[in-house]
C-alpha cells in the first residue's frame, strides 16, 4: 500500500499516461519501455526535490521529454516510427477505439506524416495531444515560451498537410 509521501503512489497514479507518452514519443515498444524505466529512475532520484505544490504528472512528463531528448542526442537511440512487424502495427492501432478502425488507413498516413516531422515539432505535437494539454500547459511542461509552442504547432500542421497531400499526389 502506498502513501502520498511515496513516489510509488504517484507513479502508479500516472502509469497509464506515462506509458502512453513514452509509446507516443518512441513509437516503438522496446524503446518506450526503456524510456519509461529511465524516466521513473530519474523521478526516484530527484523525488526529494519535487515540490508537492506542483502537479506530479507535469513534473514527470517533463522529465520524460527531457530524458527522451537526452537519450536521442546521446545515443541516437530512439528512431521515428517504422512498423517493423504486423504485430507492432496492430498493437499500436489496438489502442484506437473499435468504431474508429475503419479509418486505420487514414491514421496510418497521419502517423507516418507525424513521424516525418523534425524532432522539435514532433515532440510538441505529442505533448499537446497525448493528454489534451493546452498550448500554455505544453509550454510549461517543455519549458519553452507559449508563442514558440504555437508557432511550432502551426508549422507542424503545415508540414503534415504537405506530406499527406504529397503522398496523395503519388498515389494518383
Amino acid at each position: 500500500m502506498y502513501s502520498k509521501f511515496d513516489i510509488g503512489y504517484y507513479l502508479e497514479e500516472c502509469r497509464e499516461r506515462l506509458s502512453r507518452l513514452c509509446i507516443n514519443l518512441c513509437s516503438n515498444r522496446h524503446d518506450a519501455e526503456d524510456l519509461f524505466q529511465d524516466t521513473c529512475l530519474r523521478a526516484v532520484k530527484y523525488f526529494k526535490k519535487y515540490n508537492r505544490d506542483m502537479d506530479f504528472e507535469k513534473w514527470i512528463f517533463r522529465i520524460c521529454v527531457n530524458t527522451y531528448r537526452t537519450n536521442l542526442k546521446r545515443k541516437n537511440r530512439y528512431k521515428t516510427i517504422t512498423f517493423e512487424t504486423t504485430y507492432e502495427y496492430d498493437l499500436f492501432f489496438s489502442c484506437i477505439p473499435e468504431n474508429e478502425h475503419q479509418h486505420d488507413e487514414r491514421y496510418r498516413d497521419l502517423l507516418i506524416a507525424v513521424n516525418k516531422l523534425p524532432e522539435k515539432y514532433r515532440t510538441i505535437l505529442v505533448m499537446r495531444y497525448f493528454n489534451d494539454y493546452s498550448e500554455e500547459e505544453t509550454a510549461k511542461i517543455i519549458g519553452i515560451p507559449k508563442g514558440t509552442v504555437k508557432s511550432r504547432l502551426s508549422k507542424a500542421k503545415k508540414i503534415i498537410r504537405e506530406v499527406i497531400e504529397c503522398e496523395e499526389c503519388n498515389d494518383r
Binding site: 502509469r15 507516443n24 515498444r29 489496438s94 491514421y107 502517423l111 495531444y129 489534451d132
Partner: peptide, 29 residues
C-alpha cells in the same frame, strides 16, 4: 483520398495520441 480537414486532423491527432493504453500494455517500473 480527400484532403484532411482541420476537424479530421484534430480528431486524428486525438485518437493517435490520446487513446488509453490497455492495462496489459502499460509499463511497470
Amino acid at each position: 483520398k480527400n484532403v484532411m480537414t482541420d476537424e479530421e486532423f484534430e480528431k486524428g491527432m486525438h485518437l493517435l495520441f490520446n487513446s488509453e493504453v490497455p492495462e496489459e500494455s502499460c509499463f511497470t517500473f
